[in-house]
């Protein structure tokens, strides 16, 4: 459109771009929270450790492994090796632990299926007892106590981002309304020449749509660049080449939707403003 990005419109353009940037950043943050929550939930709910109390000997570990692998809700089970235990202790404690220094371990690591029940520990103990193995579960998910927290967090992040995006859309719309005020001269002239309210609103709305779309593109591109920088800085070993495998198609939704949503909000705001000016110009009394 003629003069769309010149002069006074430049400040309006950057106002719109900033609002879109903020909305897209909120959307991407919500996606990040979602991804972290899913990952946390998978880790938290998918893993258990059982200690075999009786009978003693290596045979009990094999019996326990067989029993657990056949138990419902269990994906896989395997005795914990000294090397694996040392690695875990190093990870949890931070200090150097030698595998050879560890006593005999009577531990079984268990990967649970997502369909595992709320009382995973009780179910594991019962499954082992049926095979004549007495065991205690050292670590298991407790969905009854802490389960669902990540779901709530995901919902909160999604609703928060949606509400924030709505506020930003309102800001875009109100800012675009000022475009109509800047076009008051044109609206008045068109009205005097016999343009209908729809024609005038269409003319100003078209200009606002273009402005909103380009501002949306720029705002989304900036938010995307910032998000990629944060990923590269925050995730160890993350590189540009590894990013495609880390990003899901769903993560692009805020980026892709931003220019269109911005154009729509700007159009609605500008059309409303132009219609209001036209109504005043058309009827002096």
């Amino acid at each position: 459109m003629k003069n769309a990005l010149a002069g006074m419109e430049r400040s309006l353009f950057w106002t719109l771009a900033f609002a879109v940037f903020a909305a897209v950043a909120a959307g991407l943050a919500a996606r990040a929270v979602d991804r972290l929550a899913v990952s946390y939930e998978a880790q938290r709910s998918g893993y258990a450790i059982a200690r075999i109390v009786a009978p003693e000997g290596q045979e009990a570990l094999s019996t326990a492994q067989t029993a657990l692998n056949a138990a419902p809700g269990v994906s896989s089970a395997a005795p914990m090796t000294a090397g694996r235990a040392a690695a875990l202790l190093r990870e949890w404690g931070g200090g150097e632990v030698q595998a050879a220094e560890l006593p005999e371990l009577r531990l079984v690591e268990i990967e649970l299926e997502p369909s595992a029940g709320d009382d995973a520990a009780g179910d594991l103990v019962a499954a082992l007892a049926q095979s004549g193995v007495t065991a205690e579960v050292l670590q298991a998910p407790d969905n009854a106590a802490g389960g669902g927290l990540s779901d709530r967090l995901k919902r909160l992040a999604a609703w928060g981002a949606a509400a924030f995006a709505l506020v930003m859309a309102l800001i875009v719309s109100l800012a675009a309304r000022s475009l109509a005020a800047r076009r008051r001269e044109m609206v008045t002239v068109l009205c005097d020449l016999g343009a209908t309210q729809g024609q005038v609103a269409g003319q100003v709305g078209q200009e606002a749509a273009l402005l909103g779309f380009y501002a949306g593109l720029v705002g989304a591109a900036l938010a995307g660049a910032v998000a990629i920088s944060i990923l590269l800085l925050a995730i160890p070993n993350a590189r540009i080449e590894t990013l495609p495998s880390m990003i899901l198609p769903l993560d692009f939704v805020p980026l892709a939707a931003a220019p269109f949503a911005s154009a729509l909000a700007a159009t609605l705001g500008a059309r409303g403003g132009a219609s209001s000016i036209h109504a005043k110009a058309a009827r002096l009394g």
Binding site: L193, G194, A282
Partner: peptide
Amino acid sequence: SETLQAKVKRRI
């Protein structure tokens, strides 16, 4: 109507 008024205005 508004449309008819606009049409008349275009002839003035």
